[in-house]
Simulated assay, not measured.
Amino acid sequence: MGDGVSRVSLTGTAELTFVDQVLDALERLCRAADGISEEDRTFFSLAVSEIATNIVTHSGCEGDAEVTVIADLTVDDAALSARFQDDAAPVAVALEEAELPDELAESGRGLAIAKMALDQLSHEVNNGHIWTLVRKRR
């Protein structure tokens, strides 16, 4: 692609250390790009963190089977985007039903927070899961 597009791709195991690696790579990508607002960087990083953590938490590892995750992060003049693909056992996800739980709930906020922070959040099942996250630059 042309100027103004920066990308990074990471492959790892569905573990919390991989979430940290993705967030570190995203931070480097945002620092290297021109003119990303603090709001865009913060909200997109939050959404990436929530989805990546959900992948790790709900990957459904059976026995010693490892789940592999590929994270593709892109920053261009129009948007910040991420695509996560994993090879976990397929599970249906009802994104349209994701909403913030009661304030005393201990979990269940991740998808709702990501939806609020993004312009597009999609999930599909295809030999695992594919998550697409897009935040248009303000």
Score class of each variant (00 low, 15 high):
E62Q: 14
E62H: 13
E62P: 04
G63W: 04
G63L: 09
G63F: 09
G63D: 13
D64S: 13
D64H: 09
D64C: 07
A65Y: 11
A65Q: 12
A65R: 13
E66S: 13
E66T: 08
T68D: 03
T68K: 10
V69P: 01
V69L: 05
I70R: 14
I70V: 15
I70P: 00
I70G: 02
I70D: 09
I70T: 15
A71R: 01
A71E: 00
D72S: 13
D72C: 05
D72W: 01
D72H: 05
L73P: 00
L73V: 04
L73A: 04
L73D: 01
L73Q: 02
T74W: 03
T74V: 15
V75T: 11
V75F: 06
V75M: 08
V75C: 15
V75E: 11
D76F: 07
D76H: 05
D76N: 15
D76T: 02
D76C: 08
D77H: 10
D77K: 12
D77N: 12
D77L: 12
A78W: 09
A78N: 12
A78R: 14
A79E: 14
A79Q: 15
L80D: 00
L80C: 02
L80F: 03
S81L: 04
A82Q: 02
A82K: 01
A82H: 03
A82M: 05
A82C: 14
A82G: 13
R83H: 03
R83S: 06
R83L: 08
F84Y: 07
F84T: 00
F84G: 01
Q85A: 14
Q85P: 01
D86M: 08
D86W: 07
D86R: 06
D86L: 11
D87G: 04
D87F: 09
D87R: 04
A88F: 05
A88V: 03
A88K: 10
A89Q: 08
A89N: 07
A89Y: 10
P90I: 04
P90W: 06
P90S: 10
P90A: 13
P90V: 11
P90N: 05
V91T: 15
V91W: 09
V91K: 15
A92W: 08
A92Q: 09
A92E: 14
V93Q: 02
V93P: 02
V93D: 03
A94L: 10
A94E: 13
A94M: 07
A94C: 06
A94T: 07
